[in-house]
Design a protein around this nucleic acid. Structure first.
Length: 858
RNA sequence: GGGCGAGUGGCGGAACGGCAGACGCGCCGGCUUUAGGAGCCGGUGUCGCAAGACGUGCGAGUUCGAAUCUCGCCUCGCCCACCA
């Protein structure tokens, strides 16, 4: 018998991942082991993990995010699917431009260097990425098609230009993306100055056209929290629009949106957003000075002031009165900054008795409060009090609707308004159209030129890509760096050929990432954004993994893209990602987000150098549930190192062991697996034989239970429990070795099952040991083991015996013991009798195969 | 303020109506080693000599039986926050 120590230091060589990991990776790459073949007849499986931003360094979070889907991808392939698992880089964006400003480097050069570095680091993980499909979004060969897609949207009326308020840093004189506005005080990320809103002409994608369809998640398997976040972000509200005529000559009525049309009898004033277009028209001369001052203040105020939690409920009366269409009462028209210009109609009917914001405003400005709903059978509320909304209200003081339940009145009043031509039922959304233009250099230029005669014209497809010029001055001046590049600006109108000016805005990087998964299907196609046949073959993505922080950004935009492209006629499916799984976030040891500025970034390179990449992969997957993440702490990594060291020792071929013909299911063994004693070593003779047979059966049971459970755990992304089960099997193998089972068929079966199950999670060691055992290259091309249900079942059970739910004894019985016999044995137990102390059992509850509970109390 | 999620040993976690603490870290003891390290074996929720009792944030409830289901509260995390 060979001891573990001998195996580790003697014949087999020490467990030293550095001696084989790199070599296997090179061989896999040379053999194109992971290339997804378009012509492969097997069922396709497109597994995708979110591509990274090329910041320059792969950190522990990248390893954590990538290892999970890699395990699943590898298992799926062993299970017979044609798996595509591509990788690329989301390489346009602000941090690179910032580096260009700070360090004086060229963004393209900087990006290329970062990608080279990260690609090399990625390779050390041993993931089965198909690098032949790599996509780099800042490559003109890619962004040419991003520009083409913009054009498709433009032609379909899904891209348009409009005036919009954007975040502006008054100190740097520059527009900021929303994600560059930081913290509760909404300050500029670079200089810490509070941002203000500025009105600028911007490009939008018409996401709101798809608001309703985006709320429909039928047919896709996405985590509930993500669906909820998207649902809340879209924010569908049902209610009514109501027209309030204005007491002024030749003025249109003011339309409001409300979710509570049942409270219209309580509307005692109106409030418009300061930006509402009617304000200029309606304001009476005597109010003009005050109103203009208020509007100007609202415009200048930073958003934080306007959205402050401590609201002053400021506002001014603008002069005229409107008429409540249900009560015919004159009500004053005010403006206030708590009414938002972008939501609903930008105007509200104020019902101070039943809306807390209106209530605060009415109290502050001494406006009337009228109660029009009350709890069923309840009293009118005390004068001046605010009443919390309840579910069983009825209308009061509401004309013909008095006495009707509030729930019924919502529909009835909306209907009557519609009949009167004063509005009617309406739906509104919080979702806004997607602002895609950025006054930035490092992005895909928007392919538009402006002709003095013909206005905004799309750059013809033959002229794409509109390339980013080199040698641009990045110093922040308040306008896009492209605006100071005379040569870039110069263009000709595609309609008349006259001199035109080129658009200098670039696209949001989320546009790039809204279609990269389509490009992976035919990444080298130079004539089209994608080959329709390839997309038909691979799309939709079967399983997508990534961080939950993209819930309402990337994941919503990508869904919009697919639906829009379907309607334009380029695609024939409705959703990009059939299933979605989110990994948790690995935090710094200080429980904070990892960031260079905090200095808490854990670097995997040292650990990989010390333990090898298998140990790092396995450790990351073992520390907890993959979807949970948590603070980084490497203190347990020794346990994984020891585990793989044990596997290393156990899986060395035994002297004389037959390695021809597999002991693993799916590859039928040459000889019987009934548990015969080993051919060499071990105490084979005499009375130990019985023990050996039992141990052999127990080992086979452990093997088959593990095959069953690990496959399920991997598929469910429960990598931590899968690994613990592999450890248990390894422990069982260790016990079997002590009993002298090493070299037996059952032992070989256990070892080879362990290696096959380990292969997705620890691909290098599995390959190395598989090879050392003389098995055919590559373990990653082998069939996934199948389990034998009969072998996985024990023939005896240990049943817990409880009295009134407390554990008192355990019974060991054969699985076919009848219930009456189990009850008799349980009651006959000495420990049970002692605990009963003469009390008679009232009844005995038996859960077959689980437990026995003797109930004595009533 | 609203929504969602989570509270289990010294630590990461497992179990998700049926033996609480699998698996691992750490710690304690032993073997081995010139030594250090590594490795191997055993122990390790709390109290108790033991029998046993107690134990999954707190309090109630449902159940033969609750970490698990229900209700209320506390704490932490994430997302959205004047959305009419």
């Amino acid at each position: 018998m060979t001891t573990d120590t001998e195996a580790r230091t003697g014949r087999a060589g020490r467990f030293d991942p550095a001696s084989y990991e790199q070599g296997w990776r090179e061989r896999w790459q040379a053999d194109a082991l992971y290339r997804a073949d378009d012509e492969d007849p097997r069922q396709k499986h497109y597994l995708l993990t979110m591509y990274p931003y090329p910041s320059g360094d792969l950190h522990i979070g990248h390893w954590y995010a990538a290892t999970g889907p890699d395990i699943v991808a590898r298992m799926r392939r062993m299970q017979g699917l044609n798996v595509m698992f591509p990788m690329g880089f989301d390489s346009f964006g602000l941090p690179t431009e910032n580096a260009a400003i700070d360090r004086g480097v060229d963004p393209a050069t900087w990006t290329a260097a970062n990608i080279d570095q990260m690609r090399a680091q990625f390779r050390t993980m041993g993931c089965m990425f198909d690098w032949s499909r790599e996509v780099v979004t800042s490559d003109p060969a890619y962004y040419r098609w991003t520009q083409w897609l913009f054009g498709e949207f433009f032609k379909a009326g899904l891209a348009y230009k409009a005036m919009a308020p954007v975040d502006w840093c008054p100190r740097d004189q520059v527009v900021l993306a929303r994600e560059q506005v930081e913290g509760p005080n909404r300050v500029c990320w670079r200089c810490g100055t509070p941002v203000v809103k500025r009105d600028l002409e911007q490009w939008f994608f018409r996401t709101t056209r798809y608001a309703d369809e985006l709320l429909d998640f039928r047919g896709i398997d996405w985590p509930e929290p993500i669906r909820l976040m998207q649902t809340n972000w879209i924010g569908r509200s049902e209610g009514a629009e109501i027209d309030f005529p204005v007491e002024a000559d030749g003025v249109d009525p003011i339309r409001v949106f409300t979710t509570r049309p049942d409270t219209v009898f309580g509307a005692t004033f109106m409030v418009l957003a300061p930006e509402h277009p009617a304000v200029v028209v309606l304001t009476t001369p005597d109010r003009r000075a005050e109103v203009e001052a208020y509007v100007e203040r609202a415009r200048r105020e930073t958003e934080i002031d306007r959205m402050s939690a401590e609201r002053e409920r400021s506002g001014v009366f603008i002069g005229p009165y409107a008429v409540n269409p249900m009560t015919n009462e004159r009500i004053p028209i005010w403006i206030a900054d708590y009414v938002l210009p972008g939501y609903g109609t930008g105007a509200i009917m104020a019902v101070p008795a039943h809306d807390e914001r209106d209530y605060d405003f009415a109290r502050r400005h001494e406006l009337p409060i009228r109660y029009v709903v009350a709890p069923t059978g309840g009293e009118a509320p005390a004068e001046g009090a605010f009443v919390e909304h309840t579910s069983d209200e009825v209308l009061v003081d509401s004309g013909e609707f008095s006495g009707m339940s509030a729930a019924d009145a919502i529909g009835a009043i909306a209907q009557q308004l519609a009949d009167l031509g004063l509005g009617g039922p309406a739906v509104t959304y919080r979702l806004r159209d997607w602002l895609v233009s950025r006054q930035r250099y490092w992005g895909a230029p928007i392919p538009i030129v402006y002709c003095p005669e013909h206005g905004a014209q799309l750059v013809p497809e033959a002229e794409l890509p509109v390339r980013l010029p080199e040698g641009v001055d990045f110093a922040p001046t308040g306008v896009s760096p492209l605006q100071s590049h005379a040569e870039f600006l110069r263009a000709t109108c595609p309609v008349c050929g006259a001199e035109a000016r080129r658009e200098t805005d670039t696209m949001d990087t989320f546009v790039d990432s809204s279609w990269y998964f389509l490009r992976y299907c035919s990444p080298h196609d130079e004539l089209r954004a994608w080959d329709p046949e390839a997309v038909k073959r691979w799309m939709p993505v079967d399983l997508y993994t990534g961080g939950a922080e993209h819930a309402v950004l990337h994941l919503l935009y990508a869904r919009f893209f697919i639906k829009a492209l379907r309607d334009i006629g380029h695609l024939s499916f409705d959703e990009p990602f059939l299933a979605l799984r989110n990994q948790g976030q690995i935090l710094g040891a200080d429980h904070q987000r990892m960031s260079k500025s905090r200095g808490n970034v854990a670097n995997p390179d040292e650990l990989v150098a010390r333990y090898g990449s298998d140990v790092v992969r396995l450790f990351l997957m073992f520390i907890g549930p993959w979807d949970q993440g948590g603070p980084w702490n490497a203190s347990g990594i020794e346990g994984i190192h020891r585990f793989l060291g044990r596997v290393w020792a156990q899986a060395q071929p035994e002297p004389g062991e037959a390695v021809e013909g597999s002991a693993v299911p799916g590859m039928p063994p040459a000889q019987s697996l009934a548990g015969e004693p080993p051919g060499s070593g071990g105490p084979a003779a005499g009375e130990l034989l019985g023990t050996i047979e039992e141990m052999s059966r127990a080992l086979r049971r452990a093997t088959h239970i593990t095959i069953r459970d690990v496959g399920e755990d991997y598929a469910d992304f429960h990598f931590n429990t899968a690994i613990s089960k592999l450890m248990e099997l390894s422990n069982a193998i260790g016990k079997a070795r002590d009993t002298g089972l090493a070299g037996s068929a059952a032992y070989g079966e256990a070892i080879e099952a362990l290696l096959l199950l380990l292969a997705p999670a620890a691909p290098h060691i599995a390959e190395e040991l598989w090879s050392r055992r003389g098995r055919p290259y590559s373990i990653h091309l082998q069939a996934w083991p199948t389990f034998d249900a009969a072998l996985a079942t024990a023939d005896t059970l240990e049943l817990p015996v409880q009295i009134d739910g407390k554990l008192r004894d355990r019974l060991v019985v054969t699985v076919d013991t009848p219930a009456e016999e189990i009850e008799r044995l349980a009651l006959a137990s000495e420990r049970v009798q002692a605990h009963l102390g003469g009390r008679p059992p009232r009844r005995v509850v038996q859960i077959p195969g689980r437990l026995v509970n003797i109930v004595t109390s009533g």
